[in-house]
Design a binder for these strands. Structure first.
Length: 501
RNA sequence: GUCCCUGUCGUCUAGUGGUCUAGGACUCUGCCCUUUCACGGCAGCAACACGGGUUCGAACCCCGUCGGGGAUACCA
């Protein structure tokens, strides 16, 4: 393999729903690779043991495939640099950390969390750089080794130069300069023996012969650390290109978050968006065709776009415009027969209907009751009347608070099944001392749009986490919403109620 | 707080010193088409963050201010 071969990757971490930001980065990496006859690689960065799940990994692969953003090498298809899942590469990282340790480029740190917290608080108060004070950097090598030998818990940190400038280059921004004094002695190996992102990422990018690192802008400030690691290992660093972050459509355009917007690719799928429209929409961000036509295929995008001409301003993920584009695809690219097939593949096929039928059957006086009874299974948001969103003895703002707590609680569920959902509402009813039957009423209304409907927990499971979240949030807004202040107070109550258990 | 990135209509963008009294698209408004709605057609509202330079000339180059974002974790 020649060193000029283009190899790029998208490296999601499987810690939640498949995020549209991942798809956005996958799209640009894929297009770049195709333009230069290179390879596009999918690597799973599951070094966060507490948060990574295989369900999440599964959903990410599935979602990207649904969008048509397939990869040449990855955990499912293999490749010359397997394994493509970081949790299966632990010995590799260990070996590289040992090398840095041996070369004096890294050191063991025995500081406790308490000490680090106190130190940061102190530095912050003095308005100084809040990085690690490098106390353990001075520990003699043999003492460090023997303490580790004796079983003392430690992490490994990389040494960052104490002075001078780091000069880095970004394809879109040109030269960026950063003072080494503003860079922390980054932890590269955690006390559980897992590497952090920084180490694993650099080692894998090198071993997998990645030529261009195209990733989100949130990584710019870590580039100096990465550059230093390449230098310590004696490796040639890749070309860096940081894509602007997707933003919320709120007043200050904060980074796209699921608290304010649906961010899960699964949501868009369930809400009836077409993969080609979503891909087109993401491509439209930062790039327009010369002729001004905004509708284009992935192939056209690959053929014409130029990564260097990307616009750098934060980009709002404007669902309104996505809807318009999606409508054009439905109108222009399908005839009645193919649209019917599309609908069947979406939610009107036996797979989904088979699950709904048993829930509906006991509530059907005539077959024609089906339409209104089950309509909410096929909708994005449902029409809700505020006066129905009531809970005995509670003010609307209290109801909003309860719904919000449930959103948080449901968010934490590893598996979104009826039994777990019931568990959430049951514990909520116990802790708040509200009868479950009363508590569920506003949930019925928010989720199904009606006080009388199919069983709540099963219905929520079938709808899935994304649609449920969207509808609960919609109901909260209808009840007047929650101010930042109220949310804070609520978070406190929430922690008091649930962390003890 | 500290460091880094960024700044054209509400939003996505075109624009790389004169062709800009700034173009397109979404949204919104009005009109036309139409059995309703939608689609389609036409029209309209609406932006170069601000202040200094450089230049004959600046949305475009430089400096400062302000705004926004990100990082600041044994998360990625």
């Amino acid at each position: 393999m020649t060193s000029s071969a283009v190899r790029v990757r998208v490296a999601p971490s499987p810690t939640g729903d498949p995020h549209v930001g991942t798809a956005y980065q996958a799209l640009f990496n894929l297009a770049f690779a195709r333009q230069r006859e290179g390879k596009f690689i999918l690597r799973i960065e599951d070094t966060d043991r507490a948060r990574s799940t295989s369900e999440s990994e599964h959903m990410i692969l599935d979602s990207l495939n649904w969008l048509g953003l397939g990869w040449d090498e990855g955990p499912d298809v293999g490749g010359p640099h397997a394994p493509y899942r970081q949790s299966e590469r632990l010995p590799i990282y260990r070996e590289h950390v040992d090398r840095l340790l041996a070369d004096g480029h890294a050191y063991r740190c025995f500081c406790t969390k308490e000490r680090l917290d106190a130190m940061r608080a102190d530095h912050r108060e003095k308005k100084e750089f809040t990085g690690y004070d490098r106390k353990c950097r001075e520990i003699p090598v043999d003492e460090s080794a023997s303490r580790a030998e004796a079983g003392e818990i430690f992490v490994v940190r990389m040494k960052i130069p104490l002075e001078g400038d780091c000069v880095m280059r970004d394809v879109l921004r040109g030269e960026i300069r950063k003072d080494w004094a503003s860079v922390d002695d980054q932890v590269i190996l955690k006390s559980d023996g897992f590497p952090t992102y920084h180490l694993a990422n650099v080692v894998d990018d090198h071993l997998m012969e990645i030529s261009h690192v195209i990733r989100g802008e949130e990584w710019i400030s870590s580039v100096p650390k990465h550059l230093k690691l390449y230098e310590y290992f004696g490796w040639e660093p890749p070309v860096f290109c940081h894509l602007p972050l997707l933003r919320n459509n709120d007043a200050n355009k904060s980074k796209l978050s699921k608290r304010k917007n649906p961010t899960s690719i699964e949501y868009y799928r369930r809400a009836g968006f077409l993969p080609e429209a979503l891909v087109n929409f993401m491509g439209m961000i930062g790039w327009t065709r010369a002729e001004g036509e905004e509708k284009f295929t992935l192939e056209q995008f690959i053929e014409h776009f130029d990564i260097e001409s990307l616009s750098l301003g934060g980009t709002v993920f404007d669902v309104e415009k996505l809807r318009w584009l999606n409508a054009r695809y439905i109108r222009e690219d399908y005839d009645a027969a193919s649209l019917l097939k599309l609908l069947q593949g979406w939610a009107l096929g036996p797979e989904y209907l088979e699950k709904i039928v048993p829930l509906a059957q006991p509530r059907l006086e005539t077959l024609s009751d089906w339409g209104f009874l089950t309509a909410f299974f096929f909708a994005d948001c449902v029409p809700v009347r505020e006066e129905d969103l009531t809970l005995k003895g509670k003010e609307p703002s209290d109801v909003a608070g309860i719904l919000q707590m449930s959103v948080w609680r449901l968010e934490e569920l590893a598996s979104f099944d009826a039994e777990s959902i019931q568990g959430v509402l049951r514990s909520l009813s116990e802790k708040l001392d509200i009868k479950l039957r009363d508590l569920t009423r506003p949930f019925y209304v928010a989720i199904t749009g009606s006080k009388a409907s199919t069983p709540l927990f099963d219905s929520m499971e079938l709808l899935g986490r994304d649609l449920v979240r969207t509808r609960l949030r919609h109901a909260i807004e209808l009840l007047g919403g929650l101010s930042t202040k109220k949310t804070k107070a609520l978070e406190k109550d929430y922690r008091a109620l649930f962390t003890a258990s």
